[in-house]
């Protein structure tokens, strides 16, 4: 009974969904599969290159310590940037969600996350102007301070960290703000009525309730930072060699695509592992 109608409905669902998901398949999922395949080749299978299946690209990662060391360096960078962003961003989100009231809150919140939606490359570039020797930071400090200082943070790890924190800070503020905003003010009043002081309330009420949002923000920062290459290149100079820049090199300088694919895939594995571990938290943060 009504098989016709059920079929019509199925056709309609298919018609509405398939363009978008076909596109995602062609542009995301097939490429990821192709990359997996490529990572097991000895050379690019284009033109008359001689190629065969091999695992040597993965062996390269484990035999020489270079790649593993760089991956670890990228992970450490990710941890540092995430930690700084959380420590800086959470209090800011708290102030926005619980201290500031009314229309100004909306405007300030928009102001905080607006840079996030503007061009990241340009924002990194703007730090280059500020941080370079004889740059704005140095000139500014020397104008204020009674003694001469020599500030040249450009091409250093701190410069990379500053640039990345600047890039991703709005993420953690956004997710923490949404989580904090969802906390009923009555809960805080209730805790106070039972004699809890501010620190106790923070530790026992606010932090546990906003933790999913905070962790979601942390994961959303950590993952792209581990895969960053443009920021270290511009702000890190010679010390800016990271796992991401090595992958970039394989594709645009060295043209060893199979090795690049293998390195990308190892990075993807790390990312997926992190997302899998964090997924219960991310799910809770969604709701």
């Amino acid at each position: 009974m009504s098989a016709n109608l059920a079929n019509q409905e199925r056709l309609r669902i298919f018609g509405l969904l398939s363009p978008a998901y076909l596109w995602l398949t062609v542009a995301i999922f097939l490429p990821l599969s192709a990359m997996l395949y490529f990572s097991f080749l000895s050379d690019v299978p284009f033109g008359d290159a001689d190629w065969h299946h091999t695992t040597k690209n993965y062996q390269a990662f484990f035999q020489t310590k270079t790649y593993a060391t760089l991956l670890w360096k990228s992970i450490r960078l990710g941890l540092t940037v995430t930690a700084v962003a959380v420590l800086v961003g959470f209090p800011c989100a708290y102030v926005l969600a619980k201290t500031i009231k009314g229309r100004s809150r909306e405007a300030l919140f928009l102001l905080v996350i607006l840079p996030f939606w503007s061009n990241s490359l340009v924002r990194i570039f703007s730090w280059a102007i500020v941080l370079r020797g004889n740059g704005v930071l140095e000139l500014g400090l020397n104008a204020i301070l009674p003694f001469q200082v020599d500030v040249n943070l450009m091409f250093s790890t701190p410069a990379v960290v500053i640039g990345l924190v600047h890039s991703y800070l709005p993420y953690v503020i956004l997710t923490s703000y949404l989580a904090l905003q969802a906390i009923d003010d009555n809960l805080i009043d209730a805790a106070r009525s039972m004699g809890a002081n501010k620190l106790t309330i923070l530790w026992r009420v606010i932090l546990p309730l906003s933790l999913p949002g905070l962790l979601a923000g942390a994961v959303l920062i950590f993952v792209p930072v581990v895969g960053s290459f443009m920021e270290p290149r511009i702000l890190g100079g010679r010390v800016g060699t990271y796992y991401g820049t090595v992958i970039e090199d394989q594709f645009v300088a060295v043209f060893n695509w199979p090795l690049g694919a293998a390195l990308s895939f190892i990075l993807l594995a790390v990312v997926l592992l992190i997302l899998a571990i964090a997924s219960p938290v991310l799910k809770r943060a969604q709701t």
Binding site: M1, S2, L5, A6, Q8
Partner: peptide, 19 residues
């Protein structure tokens, strides 16, 4: 909702296949 089995008629018209 479409029934799994049985018939529904409006007037003289069976409506199982009428949206």
């Amino acid at each position: 909702i479409f029934a799994d089995s049985g018939t529904i008629r409006i007037g003289d018209q069976p409506v199982e296949n009428v949206p």
